[in-house]
Write a protein that binds this DNA or RNA. Structure first.
Lengths: 128, 128
DNA sequence: TTCCATGCAAATCGTTTGCATAAAC
DNA sequence: GTTTATGCAAACGATTTGCATGGAA
């Protein structure tokens, strides 16, 4: 992120104002509404840049495109594997203990941005 | 999974004998070694079928292709977001409590197959 | 003999890349 | 003026699909 760009500014603003874990395409569409000349590759390139710079998180999905989440305070996600809907939830995991255990057992240094769990949401349970 | 097929049998056997979270392509290659006529689509179709029937888990990845894991006893994963390596680890999460809280807050019924955390592995930390 | 699974190739989806142009510094 | 970011279109990797054929019940 060496040079400023109008497009990146707008992309950041859009994610910052999104609380629904949008896909790259969602973000592209919203940015495009304001700046019709913007290109998909600019959006993708900037999303990667913002992930690298830890301004946003990328949420890998079992279904459909990856989602993005502006980094505010750490929180957890519950993801429906049928429809891909993502819900935030609050729970106090024993972070320091978990980090230590994972480090000792695997050598992985886990990020402290929250934990993602998956399952089936209510409407998918009802509608089959 | 209505009808038996020789190919599916072999695919299941391959995953059952894999402890390294293979991709669909990995599985395809291993099956192909035994049955050179097998096709990629058969592998993909059967992997989806096996996921639906809860014989295997699909592990969504931030990087590269999805991974698959034969369902044995529940265990947790620590995933490196740089290189995609997956490690198993042991930790006693408060499953029943977490399930209840997630259900109450989000309506999602989480699966009890284990929890996946991501971070950076040792060699990626060292090699930049 | 009916239905389901396969193999093949083409299609699709999500994302990345090469290249020429435009904007930032 | 040099570097970095953009827009476009083409390329790419992973996965799905349509269709004709072969195998299971």
């Amino acid at each position: 992120m060496k040079n400023y760009s109008r497009q990146r500014e707008e992309i950041i603003k859009v994610i910052k104002n999104s609380y629904d874990h949008p896909t790259a395409e969602d973000i592209y569409m919203t940015v495009k509404a304001k700046d019709p000349a913007v290109s998909r590759s600019t959006v993708y390139r900037n999303l990667n840049l913002l992930v690298e710079n830890k301004l946003i998180n990328k949420i890998p999905m079992q279904i459909g495109a990856d989602r993005f989440d502006y980094i505010r305070k750490p929180h957890n996600h519950a993801i429906c594997i049928k429809c891909g809907k993502i819900f935030d939830f609050e729970y106090n995991f024993e972070y320091e203990e978990i980090k230590k255990i994972v480090r000792e057992q695997t050598g992985i240094e886990i990020s402290d941005k929250g934990i993602a769990l998956d399952g089936i949401c209510n409407s998918c349970k009802i509608n089959g």
